[in-house]
Design a binder for these strands. Structure first.
Lengths: 133, 133
DNA sequence: TATTGTTATACTCTATAACTATA
DNA sequence: TATAGTTATAGAGTATAACAATA
């Protein structure tokens, strides 16, 4: 099954690229991921932990570190006094956009020579894989 | 550029799957990766750190932990008294095969409904991407 | 001098278990 | 009772800088 090997190699290549791209921005890959997820809007801890596939207690310390750097802020949820919403600060939003653009640029450079038809097929195949997981 | 988003999602899906598969074997994803790399034969620290994309000092502690569990062993390099070779023990080899088979099974399950022609195209496209990195 | 690998140190990531406050 | 989030703790991953031994 050569496809499996290809996918695993691709995962590692993208992981390395993600790490190399995050580092010069002063972010770990996990921090970059968190910030980019928040680009779609604030989220509660439970929802964010689900999206990032980490325990809530692990997320607490990640958010602590990012909040100390004023990249995110916890705000209270008016509808549920137990809950909080994690939102990007202005600086966090800028950095998240910067990271997102950097990733996009780096990955585009790997794929920009694919003809449009192959590109469409590739998107369809990958989407099929990720939707089954 | 929708392709970039697809690739990033794929990376995260595969990372999660890799972690979920490693855990019940008592391995972190990084440890599983290390053991699987050694399936092709013993390697020196510098070469192994290059393959895993981590610093040699980080690798030292990883190998320490695996050696404490008797999954790998350091052997001296007869040609260079500075160097060592990291090799799988019998138990480490068994576990590496088990991990490899588990990954293969899980990823196959995501891709086994692709027709052979699409599969070939997908392998070609992915190989093109990874070879450029 | 250059290379191989290690040590020391400091952070970060992560999970488990126990906890508080609110629903 | 159940859920949202935190705290405490422990272990693992990682990088940087300095080092020892050998090439």
């Amino acid at each position: 099954m050569e496809l499996v090997g290809s996918l695993v190699r691709l995962m590692h290549v993208l992981q390395d690229l993600y790490a190399e791209t995050s580092r010069p921005l002063g972010l770990t890959p996990q921090q970059a991921h968190l910030l980019c997820v928040l680009l779609d809007g604030p989220l509660g801890m439970t929802e964010l932990s689900r999206i990032l596939s980490i325990e809530r207690s692990s997320l607490t310390s990640m958010v602590d570190r990012l909040e100390r750097r004023s990249l995110v802020a916890r705000t209270t949820d008016p509808n549920d006094r137990r809950a909080c919403q994690i939102a990007l600060s202005d600086a966090g939003s800028d950095l998240a956009h910067e990271a997102h653009n950097a990733f996009t640029g780096r990955i585009s450079a790997l794929t920009d020579d694919l003809p449009a038809t192959h590109r469409k097929q590739l998107i369809a195949a990958i989407t099929g894989i990720t939707e089954r997981s």
